[in-house]
């Protein structure tokens, strides 16, 4: 629906004379916003965008990011949420939204977003890994292992997913597999304390 609306509004804009001028304003506003952001002056970065704000996906995404940097997490989440709704298939705004949600401690919503990402992109490493971490923190070792397994199968030499999957397996009683993974973690980071401690628990 949104796409249809946008197409209509774009067509309408093209027909009207001030459209070109507005496009120029937006480009300028984005440029000045980037300049202010580089100086870590987030209020100045937000202001030009607010001035020309018409509610487009790009503006929402940008504002979400800048509000997040400005530590205004509620506003950040609100803009990202709009962006998510405007491009429902896109992964980009979902990962954006996760950041302020993380700061706000809304883990359930984060998990929902990761699963949404995985519906579109089942092999997404970030989403798989962090969904695994959320389940691991909840001591739900079965689902945690399922997500970590995907990461480990995609990145067999990745330390974080190896050690996390090892911990999940250990708690699931799959000791042989846990041993193999801890041993691998020690290859990646020789003498690693977590891996050594894990092996001792076996």
């Amino acid at each position: 629906m949104d796409l249809v609306k946008l197409t209509f509004s774009a067509a309408a804009l093209a027909c009207v004379a001030p459209a070109a001028a507005r496009a120029q304003d937006q480009a300028a506003a984005f440029a000045s916003s980037y300049a202010a952001e580089a100086k870590a002056d987030y209020a100045d970065a937000i202001a030009p965008l607010k001035a020309i704000y018409t509610g487009t996906y790009e503006q929402n995404l940008r504002l979400g990011w800048l509000y997040f940097l400005a530590k205004n997490y509620t506003a950040a989440a609100a803009h990202y949420q709009k962006a998510v709704e405007q491009r429902p298939y896109a992964i980009e705004p979902k990962f954006g939204l996760i950041k302020p949600l993380n700061a706000l401690g809304q883990v359930e919503k984060m998990l929902g977003l990761y699963t949404d990402v995985l519906k579109v992109d089942p092999q997404n490493t970030q989403a798989n890994y962090w969904a695994g971490v959320i389940y691991l923190n909840r001591k739900a070792y079965g689902p945690a292992a399922r997500y970590f397994e995907r990461v480990v199968n995609l990145y067999p030499f990745d330390y974080d997913s190896n050690i996390s999957l090892a911990w999940a397996y250990l708690n699931l009683g799959k000791k042989a597999e846990a041993r193999a993974l801890y041993t691998k973690a020690l290859l990646i980071r020789p003498g690693d304390a977590a891996a050594t401690a894990g092996l001792k628990r076996l």
Partner: peptide, 12 residues
């Protein structure tokens, strides 16, 4: 003996 890894890398 090396530990079994087959069930870890089952997707591969």
């Amino acid at each position: 003996l090396a530990a079994a890894e087959g069930s870890v890398y089952w997707l591969n």
